[in-house]
Design a protein around this nucleic acid. Structure first.
Lengths: 203, 203
DNA sequence: TGACTTTAGTCACAAAAGGTGACTAATTCG
DNA sequence: CGAATTAGTCACCTTTTGTGACTAAAGTCA
């Protein structure tokens, strides 16, 4: 499995020694999420599998005299299939390059957005191949949440959420018992059923 | 107690028959939340007691040829003390005037933002006077969440959250037993303690 | 081969949180 | 006074969570 969460940075256009989040000026007549997807694709080599707006950022300090608003988005993409364009590099979260205050806020907002969506939308499944083991899924949740989860609790919550179904295939991963493969197959929510709340699961 | 949730609208600048959310063009060199507070105050007569960004909205359809991005905020203010400026009127949610799709999205986003914050931040207390009864507090939560809560559950959750403390005053409200007055007095969160999640409380 | 290690998958029990009705208390109204 | 009304609390049950321990199926290695 992939082993860490990383953010894609681009060399700054003004100072080639520095790194910045990939960005471009908005084009007129284009929806914001479409623009964000395009910008991400330009840096990443492919479109992210999920994208969501974080919000608008402006501190009123940069570029005095002109309205300077940045609308930030988070996206996710699996490491494996991505092939970043030249000038773009992954930095592990927790070992980021020096950033402006505004960009730091954006990174922080990205983390919050991911963790808030994680139990409301199936974003984790978009980072996995069509068939996966429950251990892989759990490791992915742990990666995105930044904390360990307890195996039994995780699986129980997963069952309650009706998000996956087992296939009849198994995968042997070297040592240890082979794991059953599952696929993402959400069932209709039963009325009044609550969300998954993996985010609360304890180690 | 106040009895319903309402949104403040302004007469549209282009079509005086229509209503729109209060807005103004951004001023340069001003932080977004400061601008939003100013705009709200201009319509409301006083600053809201809480404000938070909803996000940036743009459909790429209006004002072709110029980048047209709206950054929306939600704010809350108690009915009682507000004195809207002329040309501004409250509309109860659930009986809103006709709106553009974009403004409808904003209203929807406002509701979601309020309900998401409600159990994470003490925004409800900013709509109440320094001393209040638990029934008033519960009615306010019901207003903001748009659903009834069960009295015993509500109070149990409130206790667990260590947000209020009783005073030694009581208030008689006409008929019925007098209610004890409480004040907002959050205690330090104990490590690992979870949020309040009033939002899940059942009728 | 057989003991040991490693990973998967499940269970069962305790603890915590949540849903709900019913009860007691203190007022006003008539 | 008794009925009605609102506040405040309890008790009991159900559901959800936290957690350790157990069984299963592979590989490793002497």
């Amino acid at each position: 499995m992939g082993n860490e969460l990383a953010i894609l940075f681009t060399r700054s256009t003004t100072d080639r020694e520095r790194w910045s989040l990939p960005w471009k000026a908005a084009q007129s007549g284009e929806a914001l999420d479409v623009a964000a997807t395009r910008i991400a694709q330009d840096a990443l080599g492919e479109p992210p599998t999920w994208i969501e707006q974080i919000g608008a950022f402006a501190d009123g300090k940069r570029h005095p005299g002109e309205a300077d608003i940045s609308v930030a988005f988070v996206g996710l993409a699996p490491h494996e299939t991505a092939s970043p364009r030249p000038g773009n590099t992954w930095f592990p979260v927790g070992d980021l390059p020096p950033l402006s205050p505004r960009q730091r806020s954006m990174v922080e907002g990205a983390t919050r957005t991911i963790q808030a969506r994680l139990d409301q939308a199936p974003i984790a499944f978009r980072l996995l191949p069509p068939m996966f083991t429950l251990s892989e899924l759990q490791q992915l949740y742990e990666l995105l949440l930044g904390k360990r989860l307890h195996k039994a609790s995780f699986r129980r919550a997963l069952q309650a959420a009706w998000l996956v179904e087992p296939t009849d295939e198994w995968r042997s991963e070297g040592r240890g018992r082979p794991a059953q493969l599952y696929r993402y197959a959400p069932k209709k929510r039963r009325r009044g059923q609550r969300g998954v709340r993996f985010d609360l699961l304890h180690p």
